[in-house]
């Protein structure tokens, strides 16, 4: 192994990868959310479709997309490796759980949350790739822009799918609640002045962003019923 891969394969190195990819994915969530909000514009999905079209044809974004998929992949691979290592570090557990409330409970289940998110992501990406490469979507009338929005509107008419989506967002919220501030701690950024702010912003982010995501299918579903 080179010094570089060695540096990243130790337990702190792996954590560094988790932290950097995690922060990158946190940023991506905002970009994605902005796009999603366009579904609520009430223009039949035109803005959303134009946004998606722009994203699909901008070379910078395309490179970003590849980086993002590598990021997800690394986050998943290292996350699984760490989870495995951590579980094997205590082959015999305690008979009594530690009931002290001093640590946040979300931090204890990052692995399980991650796996639920991974399942959600698998379904999500399955759709993404299917429509992107294999079963092209119809264009919006009179344009060369794919009408992805209509697909989304149809998907969100299913109560099962909406509930699944909302649950996944709650889990992402939990994952972010610890992950956000943990990423900074892993980077070594722990400071008496700034850490409380990081924790506050992290918790806020972990509530607002998943809430934003979850609202969209709920609103669409309700709109659809009331129509």
């Amino acid at each position: 192994m080179s010094w570089f891969t060695k540096a990243l394969s130790g337990s702190v190195g792996k954590k560094l990868v988790m932290s950097l990819t995690g922060l990158f994915l946190i940023l991506f969530l905002i970009e994605h959310l902005i796009g999603n909000f366009m579904l609520l514009k009430g223009d039949g999905g035109v803005a959303f479709n134009e946004f998606a079209h722009f994203m699909k044809h901008n070379p910078v974004i395309l490179v970003g997309e590849i980086v993002m998929f590598i990021g997800i992949l690394l986050h998943v691979i290292d996350g699984l490796a760490l989870e495995r290592k951590n579980r094997s570090a205590r082959p015999i557990g305690y008979a009594t759980p530690n009931k002290s409330a001093v640590t946040s409970w979300t931090s204890k289940y990052m692995g399980p949350f991650g796996i639920i998110i991974l399942i959600f992501l698998a379904i999500h990406l399955y759709d993404f790739f299917r429509y992107k490469y294999f079963s092209p979507v119809d264009n919006m009338p009179g344009t060369d822009i794919s009408d992805l929005a209509s697909l989304v509107y149809i998907k969100f008419q299913s109560l099962v799918y909406v509930v699944f989506y909302v649950i996944a967002m709650i889990v992402i919220g939990f994952h972010l609640n610890h992950g956000f501030q943990s990423a900074f701690q892993t980077l070594g950024l722990n400071h008496a002045k700034y850490t409380p702010a990081i924790k506050f912003i992290g918790s806020l982010y972990a509530i607002l962003v998943p809430l934003g995501y979850a609202l969209i299918p709920v609103i669409i579903y309700i709109q659809n019923i009331s129509n």
Binding site: K14, K15, L82, K85, N86, S88, V102, T103, S107, Q181
Partner: peptide, 10 residues
């Protein structure tokens, strides 16, 4: 054979 830190704080 120790585990890795997940910043749980316990």
């Amino acid at each position: 054979g120790f585990g890795a830190c997940t910043n749980t704080g316990a």
